[in-house]
Nucleic acid binder design. Structure first.
Length: 191
DNA sequence: GGACCGATTCGCT
DNA sequence: GCGAATCGGTCCT
């Protein structure tokens, strides 16, 4: 695993991703360090959702719920899933976002364990938002190095690729990405 | 106003 | 493997 010094500074994240689509950003985020108010880890699993994508919340146009997905790049899109969990996305460009599905936790472990108990911390989109204490009020907040920060890895990481999880439409699109060799993925990738 | 459905997780069988 | 928990959005009537 890479150490913090080898990542790009978190303050540069929003400029570094300028103009990228969600499919590119989903791959670029593998190996990045995500931090939220002092807790976080290395992103090991993502999914891309785009404007023309029938599985994307943005597909039917803006609503109060998905408004931040149509906002500027590098901001968070946080929504409630199944009435119970929150899911955390990074907006790529308007109407496109990347769902963060799993992390390898590497700082703030005590606080995460307080919130998750004696269970896996970050190997699923709802689990990691609980571990990191993502709140619905984080919807629309920038990943600018304040409460929310992302530091990209210095070079592309070895990737796994496969179909997205838990969707009923566009199931053929291979827009789920993982860090090759990582443990703690939310599910295995098909071989 | 009402039915249906999730970008999920957990506990039980 | 299966069903419950839980609620806002969306698409009807």
């Amino acid at each position: 695993m890479r150490d913090a010094a080898s990542h790009h500074p978190a303050s540069n994240f929003m400029q570094l991703i300028a103009g990228q689509g969600a499919v590119d950003l989903a791959q670029a985020l593998i190996g990045a360090r995500l931090s939220l108010r002092g807790c976080g880890g290395i992103i090991i699993e993502t999914e891309a959702y785009t404007a023309e994508d029938p599985a994307s919340h943005s597909h039917r146009g803006p609503t109060p719920r998905n408004a931040s997905m149509f906002g500027p790049a590098g901001h968070a899109y946080v929504y409630r899933s199944y009435g119970i969990h929150l899911c955390l996305n990074v907006v790529a460009r308007p109407a496109e976002a990347v769902l963060i599905r799993a992390l390898t936790p590497d700082h703030g472990l005590d606080a995460m364990q307080d919130r998750r108990g004696d269970r896996s911390l970050c190997d699923g989109p709802g689990r990691l938002t609980q571990a990191l204490d993502v709140r619905i009020t984080d919807d629309g907040a920038p990943f600018d190095g304040g409460d929310l920060a992302i530091a990209l890895p210095p070079q592309p990481q070895p990737l796994l690729q496969g179909p997205r999880i838990g969707i009923s439409r566009a199931q053929d699109l291979p827009w789920r990405f993982g860090l090759a060799g990582a443990s703690g993925l939310s599910r295995r990738f098909p071989s």
